[in-house]
Design a protein around this nucleic acid. Structure first.
Length: 876
RNA sequence: GCGGGCGUGGCGGAAUUGGUAGACGCAGCGGACUCAAAAUCCGCCGUCGCAAGACAUGUCGGUUCGAGUCCGACCGCCCGCACCA
């Protein structure tokens, strides 16, 4: 029986409409079944979805559809991370308002996402730039302010002296403003901060409970929080070298044991002592200025050449007042970390060593490896940073580094400098408070008012929301809120006097730090409905890019803690399970070479294989194009594939199936035309096999075979069901795809047999049962095709509403196992034996094998290793 | 620079987490069907070798009866570094 090819252009919109009409994916907060919350990181509305989105949402959708079939009450919402700089750039470049630009982008991206057939509850959709959303964010801010989780302090920004505007780190290129090209300066502004450091220890401790997070992400967060145990050590300044009023410097160190290896102190350019020294010495002032001309990004700072300048200030060594050391200003010391001052021990720290070599400072080895020789141990170009034995360290000589730490700590704690101990044990964190102020328009306004008399006054909740004004201009740089004619003028809520609105808006990371909570009650008047939030949270499976491993995830973890303190919910951790997916990458194509070269998009070329070598040619004139490396899809390299084009020509199911197959989801996937065609052939093949057999299966009651001709069919189906189920639970979709291909290969002949009218009723019942299992296991990946197959088999209910089948244990177990037999670790034979055979039975059977007899040649084996149901190794 | 990760056939990958390396797919080759092509179906497919076999998981060492998996060093690529989202 011949059937028509499967036509996704017809089937996909049809099923999407049916799901929509039946509200299959709308979630009821009152549903009593066990909940499952699956969430993909919501997109920034750039205007068009890209393959990364397709992959991200396909992954989440499989989880959502699978868990729904498993009987959970699934929440799977979608929204828009809609504030941010690109809207302002578009406003500047194209004279469109950020608001209309953003909402238009949302509209077109929503159409694209809908074409993917995702099982989303669109009734909960919101954008973070909706007044209804940022209104509640402002309320949260006020509550956090009341709890002391918000404060202001001076902090540095990248300042463009030509455009008179604050630049983001990504807008600073090689130390210059991206538009003006001017050398960027650091400038201090009073800015708003969240006290994330209140939770440093807790954020660190609770990482241990996140056992469904990738180990690497937990490790990254742990290192980011950066707990260290060390000492604050006070160094007395030699009075004759001290700037007026200065008597000492406090240094934070994690290695007090290496104090006898100290050869200098280094302080940040913004350290008070450095500022004092700069006042008297123009060279120091010039150096500090140079340090400030770097951007504020740590990466830029640390890749820069390590430099310093002697301040002329001398300090006395804390363990020997007669020993004087120089104090340098150094560009690698940060005011934000520790005390803004370090002591340099060149033999024990590579950076200090490089610095010492550069400025001719002494290098005294103080730690050597346990088996080293103190008389000959020297430091060359490499510092010795590990633990070991103390040398050249007076009373510490011969002690371990750990003991030396203790001895120095006790000594410094009991020595007085002035009336205070010279040193104090201190736990330090690398984590800094979260600066949320942005001098930009397109963000959530910070709801406070500045009054000359009353100071900083929170906007009363009844006056919320503080709405963004719409009549703004982007024809000049700087913050439009600042120069708006009326917006910032407001009466003080306290005294009624003329006052000014805060014109800073919030970091867009704030928006994304609690949106997952808002989805649980998106139309609530308050930020959350705490009872509802507590029922849905934590998110059971969160899926997104590894690039968010630290900031977004840490900020969200902070927010649940802050929202707990302010009574908005009562959970500690936002995301129970986390999955970080890899990127979608593609070959690059380049026409011409060097400066005249230009990137060519995959749509403009065809690939041919000539003598086993892949070559690319321009479609328009046949010119040969060179095939370049495989890279992340990006507009600049033109190696992008538009999901719209793929969906239009192959359908959403093919696109979904392709991004799920082949590569494991946490690794990069290479987009290739051949791969897509392979996925498309699979969809067609599945449809053809099912639909051609369907005529002879429609009235048949599904029933697995326990014996006879159809037994292997039922066994294959149930084994696949079990395997795919496990793969779905582990998010190993590429493995599930492989299992599904195998099942299709196994079922091809039986389905063809049924299609041709053969097979008795028992056989047909088994084939039908296997076919249904096949359709149900692919349904989460290719939902439209599955519905179409499900319907053609005569099922009245949609497959999206059909419970997951249960596999039959008796069809899954094997009675015999085949063991590889190794002799000295090399495979020499095989042995098939009963699954439950005991060790001695296995040994006897093995020794009876010809291959083993030949290898032993009459000798007795030295040892026989039997790993039950795995392997046998004979040592000769 | 610091922190984290990855590296297996021509290609994407699998390997029950220390137990038969290469499942499954893509590409390729051979065959069937066809006037022909497409589609489809069947078979072959790590390297060397006639074969027995040997060699093979980025490189070099180590641990082990046994290493893709564990340890050490190195090489290459990718992500993050606090104002991109």
């Amino acid at each position: 029986m011949a059937t028509e090819r499967y036509n996704p252009r017809d089937a996909e919109p049809r099923w999407q409409q049916k799901w929509n009409e039946a509200k299959v994916f709308e979630t009821d907060n009152g549903d009593p079944r066990e909940k499952y919350y699956v969430l993909e990181m919501f997109p920034y509305p750039s205007g068009r979805i890209h393959m990364g989105h397709v992959r991200n949402y396909a992954l989440g959708d499989v989880v959502a559809r699978y868990k729904r079939a498993r009987g959970f009450n699934v929440l799977h919402p979608m929204g828009w991370d809609a504030f941010g700089m690109p809207a302002e750039n578009a406003a500047r470049d194209n004279k469109v308002h950020p608001k209309s630009w953003t909402y238009q982008n949302i509209a077109s991206m929503k159409t694209q996402l809908k074409a993917m057939g995702l099982s989303l509850d669109w009734s909960r959709e919101f954008a973070t730039c909706d007044v209804e959303y940022y209104h509640r964010q402002q309320a949260l801010f006020l509550d956090m302010m009341e709890k002391g989780l918000v404060y202001r302090k001076k902090s540095k920004v990248n300042w463009d002296p030509v455009d008179h505007t604050v630049l983001a780190n990504e807008q600073v290129i090689d130390g210059r403003g991206w538009r003006s090209g001017a050398l960027v300066e650091q400038r201090e502004l009073v800015q708003w901060f969240f006290k994330i450091t209140d939770f440093s220890q807790d954020l660190l401790d609770e990482l241990d409970t996140l056992d469904q997070w990738p180990e690497k992400v937990r490790l990254m967060q742990k290192n980011w929080i950066g707990r260290s145990e060390g000492m604050a050590v006070r160094w007395e300044i030699v009075p004759s070298t001290a700037p007026a009023g200065e008597t000492e410097v406090t240094v934070y160190t994690t290695r007090p044991d290496t104090l006898f290896g100290a050869s200098f102190l280094a302080i940040a350019a913004d350290h008070p002592l450095a500022r004092a020294a700069a006042e008297k010495n123009p060279a120091i002032e010039a150096f500090a200025e140079e340090c400030r001309r770097h951007g504020t990004s740590l990466a830029a700072l640390e890749t820069a050449e390590k430099k310093g300048i002697d301040t002329g200030i001398r300090v006395k060594h804390p363990l020997d007042p007669s020993w004087e050391l120089p104090v340098y200003v150094a560009n690698f010391v940060l005011m934000e970390y520790g005390t803004g001052a370090i002591f340099g021990c060149p033999s024990g720290d590579q950076r200090d060593l490089d610095f010492a070599r550069k400025y001719g400072l002494p290098v005294v080895p103080v730690v050597m490896p346990k088996d080293g020789d103190a008389a000959t141990f020297e430091i060359g170009d490499t510092a010795y940073v590990d633990d070991g034995v103390m040398i050249n360290s007076r009373f510490l000589d011969g002690k371990s580094t750990t003991d030396a730490f203790e001895l120095v700590a006790e000594k410094l704690e009991s020595t007085l400098l002035g009336n205070q101990p010279q040193g104090e044990r201190k736990v330090n964190f690398r984590l800094r408070d979260w600066g949320i102020s942005r001098q930009r328009y397109w963000g959530c306004p910070i709801p406070v008012i500045h009054c000359d008399d009353c100071g900083v006054v929170p906007v009363p909740k009844k006056d919320l929301p503080v709405e963004l004004p719409e009549d703004v201009t982007f024809d000049q740089p700087g913050n439009p809120l600042d120069r708006h004619a009326t917006w910032r003028h407001v009466a003080c809520p306290n005294c009624g006097k003329d006052a000014r609105r805060e014109t800073d808006t919030m970091d867009t990371f704030v928006d994304s730090s609690w949106y997952y909570t808002r989805f649980t009650a998106p139309r609530e008047d308050a930020p959350t409905d705490p009872a509802v939030a507590d029922r849905w949270l934590p998110v059971d499976q969160y899926i997104g890019g590894i690039e968010h491993a630290i900031l977004h995830l840490l900020y969200s973890r902070f927010f649940t803690r802050a929202m707990r303190e302010t009574g908005h919910l009562d959970v500690k951790e936002p995301f129970k399970g986390l999955f970080t997916q890899g990127m979608v990458v593609h070959e690059t194509y380049r026409r011409g070479t060097g400066q005249n070269g230009e990137w060519v998009s995959p749509a403009e070329i065809r690939i041919e294989e000539i003598d086993g070598k892949r070559r690319a040619f321009l479609l328009s004139d046949g010119e040969e194009i060179s095939i370049g490396s495989i890279e992340k899809m990006s507009k600049s390299k033109k190696n992008v594939v538009d999901p719209d084009d793929i969906i239009a020509s192959y359908g959403a199911d093919t696109a979904r199936f392709f991004v799920l197959s082949d590569s494991p989801p946490d690794r990069d996937v290479i987009w290739s035309e051949a791969g897509v065609e392979g996925a498309h052939r699979f969809t067609q093949r599945l449809w053809r096999l099912i639909s051609e057999a369907s005529g002879n299966l429609v009235g048949v009651k599904p029933n697995p075979a326990k014996n006879g001709e159809a037994l292997p069919i039922s066994q294959a189906a149930h084994k696949t069901l079990k395997a795919v189920q496990e793969d779905y639970d582990r998010l190993s979709f590429n493995r599930a795809v492989a299992r599904i291909y195998e099942l299709v290969n196994t079922l091809a002949a039986p389905l063809a047999k049924v299609a041709s009218g053969e097979g008795d009723p028992t056989y047909r019942a088994a084939v039908r049962e296997a076919a249904e299992i096949l359709v149900q296991v692919v349904a989460p990946m290719t939902p439209h095709l599955a519905e179409e197959c499900w319907a053609v088999l005569g099922n009245a209910e949609m497959v999206s509403r059909t419970p997951w089948p249960a596999y039959d244990e008796t069809l899954v177990v094997e009675n015999d196992v085949t063991l590889p037999i190794q002799i000295n670790g090399k495979k020499r034979g095989e042995l098939t034996i009963a699954r439950d055979a005991d060790q001695s039975a296995v040994e006897a059977a093995v020794l009876a094998l010809d291959a083993v007899k030949a290898a032993l040649d009459g000798r007795a084996p030295k040892k026989i290793i039997v790993v039950p149901q795995r392997i046998v190794n004979i040592v000769v």
